[in-house]
Nucleic acid binder design. Structure first.
Lengths: 125, 125
DNA sequence: TCAATATTTAACCTTTTTGTTAAGTATTCG
DNA sequence: CGAATACTTAACAAAAAGGTTAAATATTGA
């Protein structure tokens, strides 16, 4: 039996990783190209250990690859798990949009009724 | 100044809401149509209070609308915030896929070198 | 009216997350 | 070599997340 590479497709971990603004910002930064840990840390007003752990969260979600380069650590994004998140959203997108359309309709209906009520009350004032 | 409706476009909350398997399952269920709290709770082996709080997480993220209907509470999905998440992912998708392609290339290159080394060593054995 | 049903709130506990400072560990460079 | 640089690990604290049971609330239906 071949030992398959575990491509972390853990949606829990992926969405959780995306739920923190610092981590999203770091991914945005990395979308523009590789960066070192310090470069990634710079814009955020937190300590380096804090950054280090954010990076491990991203790594655990499979979104980040690190490569030691001298005393610097070069980070690069890995899009594969991202596709899993994207895929999950896409799978339900149509159904949701359908729901959404119906909800919008319903709200519009409600608003119409409310306006009617408003006018009635304005009259009786 | 008109008081605008606060359409929760809080990516933190949205992604966090999506990071729990029970909440994702509930959204999947709701994609098929409205449901009551108990119906949503049934498949998951947790207490009703736990479910109730998951629902509030979804609601806080703007993903859920509830409507009391007698002693039952009818739940329906709201896709709007979902689009925000989708949008964020989309915005960086291209860049990420680009990165990914380059990463794949790099790995392929590395593997080639490794194979070369292997052959060399096999020779010298 | 009263019991059953559907759901939430309260009180509590444990685990995870996020951050801090202080102390390592490598690596480079004068 | 020895100081500076770039990080990580350890140890700790506060807050958030996720679950439980027990009690409250509201609605329906006999």
């Amino acid at each position: 039996m071949v030992k398959r590479e575990t491509v972390a497709l853990d949606l829990d971990a992926i969405f959780a990783a995306l739920s923190h603004p610092i981590r999203r910002a770091m991914l945005e930064r990395l979308a523009g190209g590789d960066a070192t840990v310090s470069e990634l840390a710079r814009p955020h007003g937190v300590s380096l250990p804090a950054i280090s752990r954010h990076l491990r969260v991203l790594e655990a979600a499979g979104l980040l690859k690190e490569e030691p380069d001298g005393r610097v650590r070069r980070c690069q994004i890995d899009a594969a798990p991202l596709s899993a998140a994207f895929g999950w959203l896409t799978r339900y997108r149509v159904l949701w949009e359908d729901r959404f359309a119906r909800l919008a309709e319903h709200l519009e209906e409600t608003r119409k009724k409310e306006r009617k009520e408003e006018r009635k009350h304005a009259h009786n004032r």
